[in-house]
Design a protein around this nucleic acid. Structure first.
Length: 562
RNA sequence: UGGGGGAUAGUUUAGCGGUAAAACUCCCGGCUCUGACCCGGGCAUCCUUGGUUCGAAUCCAGGUCCCCCAGCCA
């Protein structure tokens, strides 16, 4: 089976961030490149994070630098060890390695606290007793300047005393904050005396009860970058407005380095939702089976679905990096998956919706072994034996009693080829009392063994099949887009746009015996059907497959057009 | 006259003053023991109006539309 654990390559295309790094290096503004991927451990990683991971690790690799994995764990009420673990697993699976450079913002809490005191001492920060709602009012609006807090000009010594007592845990949540003293009239809301520290009597996954105050993102992020000597701090566009604050803090603090922030457009994908809030709801409200449900756009879900890490990287590479807002067609992802799997996935035969086919002129009780190639374009992949017999199963979709014009599969009187087997001709349609087709009676041409007729005659179709004698039962899970419209949520609640038919379970599928002991995660192509992978739910004797992605289906388009 | 940012094919990107490139989608055709893969071909008023220039998607000026910001979230 195919090994999906591949190593990341560096064939990344050009983009504006690479250009900046390259220019900085060539101009001597930077001696090396250090980037970082800084997730908050409050959920599972998804497609959007994959873009950031590939970008940050990709740039570091391309320019011989390094990329840190840093957990931005500044809000203990939302963070869990479970997420810390899953994030590391997902980044590794994606093919990236942070080496020794695993960090946590919480590792810097003491240093950050000292820098906060530095800001207080230099008159650049103050403790504010204003309640949250009053502070909101004082902040003004997008078009009106804010009002200075009555506590803005508190003496340094009093600020210092209060800030230390905040740290000591003397005050309840929400009673005081530490604010930077910048400009309440700034057009940039982030500069209207932003909160640097808030009181939070909450246990932190890593620091436990050691702290009762926690730095905000704005105070922690840039300084953490500086501590780690990050040269290029790459984030998404919604942080653009924070850059002036990022720079202000760096300039007003005795930090050991001078990082720069650059922003790119986050990833959006049609028929998909990537906001953590919505993904969390999908899980907690039971719309999916978990964070790793194969329909989820999480790395865990994508992996379980059978998508190789290389396909994810390929997708991200094709999407590119820019500053323009965009939504990528999910078809681009599916294409990257097929392109990655096609050259490597072994071919197998599986009948999703079986229809019995009886070969009347084939000797009863007899079977024979045929040879089936594991890959059409790669002889090195070898072959495996498949059993042929009097009774086999074909796909229900491959038979039509009254075929339309361009249908060249099986129909009464029609001859087709059974892959690697014989030519068969449909002689009779067997129906039950309700008129449902339950079997086809056929004859075969003994001279066509292996799939070629002795007289050179052609058939229009080649069907996949399994032998009744040794086919294995399997459960096959077919997935459609989780949402029924390309822009879920555009008319309101995204969860209202969930596709009720995103999962179809086929209980009676039959697969060839070569699949008996395929390991979990193994990717195969079921010929003429799609790419599939063994699900973790699979058990010996009860195989479970996920359809990773279907094959391109030109016939479906033709027939849909009538 | 809040501040910040963005507009190139249906989609996502490239293009960095010399006459629009790629991938995906879609359409037409070929090949085929997978209607897959593969191979041909087709699909762009570069948001708009002016200006600079021999020459503008690229430079300048005005306009239009879209996105982000008023968490003690990140």
């Amino acid at each position: 089976m195919v090994d999906t654990e591949t190593t990341a390559t560096t064939d990344a295309p050009r983009n504006f961030i690479r250009d900046i790094v390259q220019d900085d290096l060539e101009a001597g503004r930077a001696r090396g490149v250090v980037t970082r991927f800084p997730p908050e451990p409050n959920g599972f990683l998804h497609l959007g994070h994959a873009k950031s991971i590939c970008l940050n690790f990709g740039i570091a690799k391309e320019f011989g630098g390094r990329c840190h994995l840093r957990f931005d764990d500044t809000n203990p009420v939302k963070e869990e060890q479970l997420f810390i673990d899953s994030i590391q697993q997902d980044v590794r699976w994606l093919g990236f390695d942070w080496g020794e450079h695993l960090y946590y913002a919480s590792d810097y809490f003491e240093q950050l606290y000292e820098w906060a005191e530095h800001l207080v001492r230099t008159g650049n920060a103050y403790v504010d007793d204003t309640a949250a709602d009053a502070m909101r009012t004082q902040r003004g609006t997008l078009t009106e300047p804010g009002q200075n807090s009555p506590f803005r000009y508190r003496p340094v010594e009093e600020n210092l005393d209060l800030f230390r007592r905040m740290r000591a845990g003397e005050f309840p949540n929400g009673t005081r904050v530490l604010r930077a003293k910048i400009d309440m009239a700034s057009g940039n809301m982030n500069l209207r005396d932003p909160v640097l520290y808030r009181i939070l009597h909450a246990a932190h996954p890593r620091t436990g009860d050691a702290w009762s105050i926690y730095p905000t993102y704005d105070f922690a992020h840039g300084q953490s970058d500086a501590i780690e000597h990050i040269t290029h701090s790459v984030c998404t566009l919604e942080f653009e407005d924070h850059r002036p604050l990022y720079d202000w803090l760096i300039e007003h603090l005795p930090v050991p380095s001078r990082p720069r922030q650059y922003e790119f457009a986050r990833l959006n994908v049609t028929y998909t939702i990537l906001s953590k809030r919505h993904l969390t709801r999908l899980v907690t409200e039971g719309h999916v089976t978990g964070w790793d449900d194969p329909r989820m756009p999480t790395i865990a879900g994508i992996r379980r679905r059978g998508v190789p890490a290389a396909a994810l990287r390929e997708f991200v590479s094709r999407v590119g990096v820019a500053r323009a807002y965009s939504t990528v067609d999910v078809a681009m992802f599916e294409s990257a998956i097929r392109d990655t799997l096609n050259p490597s996935a072994p071919r197998r035969m599986a009948v999703l919706r079986p229809l019995k086919l009886i070969i009347d002129n084939y000797p009863e009780g007899q079977t024979e072994t045929l040879e089936a190639r594991n890959h059409p374009d790669n002889p090195d992949a070898g072959s495996r034996p498949v059993t042929f017999g009097r009774e086999i199963y074909v796909e229900q979709d491959d038979f039509m009693e009254h075929p339309p014009k361009k249908f060249y599969r099986l129909s009464p009187g029609k001859e087709v080829r059974l892959r690697y087997g014989y030519f068969v001709t449909c002689r009779e349609v067997v129906k039950d009392a309700d008129g449902q087709v339950v079997a086809l009676r056929c004859t075969y041409d003994p001279g066509s063994k292996g799939g070629n007729a002795p007289d050179g005659r052609k058939v229009q179709a080649t069907l996949h099949w399994v032998a009744a004698a040794d086919a294995l039962p399997a459960e096959i899970r077919l997935y459609a887009h989780l949402f029924s419209r390309p822009d879920p949520g555009a008319d309101g609640d995204a969860l209202a746009d969930i596709n009720p038919e995103s999962l179809e379970v086929l209980d009676g599928a039959l697969v060839e015996p070569a699949l008996a002991d395929a390991p979990v995660g193994a990717a195969v192509q079921f010929e003429r059907t799609g790419y599939f992978a063994i699900d973790p739910d699979s058990r010996p004797g009860r195989l479970v497959f996920n359809r990773t992605v279907g094959l391109r289906d030109t016939w479906a388009k033709v027939s849909a057009k009538g």
